[in-house]
Amino acid sequence: MTEQPIPPRAYGVHIEATPGDAVIRLDGEPLPPGQVTGYVLQHDVHGALPSLILHTRQPHGVLFEGLATVAVAVQQDHGDVIEEFLSGIDPAGLSRAALDRDDLDPGKHGVAEAMLKQLADWAKGRS
């Protein structure tokens, strides 16, 4: 059975950081020293709460205090994701889509280039 992810919840976040050191508090409790090697704080001002991702060292001093959605980063093997994506591609559909592209180059590698562009478009969710 696959473990179900825990839905995100908002934490009170306070970050005091200088080069080489950061003290991060979640709901007022400091994370143990050395447990987090770094973090990324991201916020779309038109979105809801900021997101705090704990994983990599931050080289510059930062001060943040407020609510944020917190996620712990998990290293992914991109090969598995790519393999899953490519295994779902219909070869005939890819050929048709590549040959129908407006930017199809008639040169020696034009069809291969069009197929790669089409795969990239599909990976980004574009038709």
Rank of each mutant, 00 (worst) to 15 (best):
D100A: 15
Q75F: 00
L49D: 12
H43N: 11
E84W: 01
Y11L: 00
V72S: 03
E84V: 03
E65L: 04
H109R: 11
L63H: 13
Q58T: 15
K117Y: 06
G47V: 10
D90F: 02
K117C: 09
L52H: 12
L119A: 04
K108C: 05
H43P: 01
G28M: 10
D90M: 04
V111N: 02
F64C: 10
V23H: 02
R96D: 12
A120C: 08
T37C: 01
V72H: 09
R25V: 08
F85Y: 14
H43W: 13
P50F: 12
V13M: 01
V13A: 03
T56S: 08
P33M: 02
S95N: 13
D100C: 14
L119Y: 07
V72D: 02
G61C: 07
L54Q: 07
A71G: 11
T37K: 06
D27E: 02
V45P: 15
P106T: 09
L54W: 09
E84G: 07
F85L: 13
F64G: 13
I24R: 05
P32S: 09
R101H: 09
I24V: 14
F85A: 12
G79L: 09
E84P: 00
L49I: 04
T56K: 05
P19A: 04
Q4M: 08
L63K: 10
G61R: 12
P8D: 02
V81T: 14
V40C: 05
D27N: 15
L52V: 14
A120L: 07
V111F: 05
V70N: 03
V13K: 00
G107T: 06
I53Y: 10
D100S: 15
V62E: 13
F85N: 13
V62R: 13
